[in-house]
Amino acid sequence: MTDTELMDLVRKTLFDVAPDLEGEELEARETFHDQFEIDSMDFLNFVIGLAKATGVEIPESDYPRLQTPAGAVAYLRANWAAAST
């Protein structure tokens, strides 16, 4: 998957867990919390959604790396590659 496709996946997953945000523009380097008032429940649902879509197991200790859209894309790229080799 390209970074563009991964960003689309991040966007789609976010809108699935927070349908009230659908149509919003994502700022790649700003945290989900700061841009969208994402709380711990939204974030957990978001991580679950990403794990389901990609098969990447995301331990709780890695949550800080997924706080921004760009961070989530980078994390998925790195771990997806690792998982599939």
């Binding site: 711990s40 957990l44 679950i48 794990a51 197991e57 331990p59 709780e60």
Partner: peptide, 17 residues
């Protein structure tokens, strides 16, 4: 919670709430 969540898959983790 930390010990419990380390054992659980993403979808089964608990929030302290």
């Amino acid at each position: 919670l930390e010990a419990e969540n380390a054992k659980r898959s993403t979808a089964e983790r608990l929030l302290y709430a």
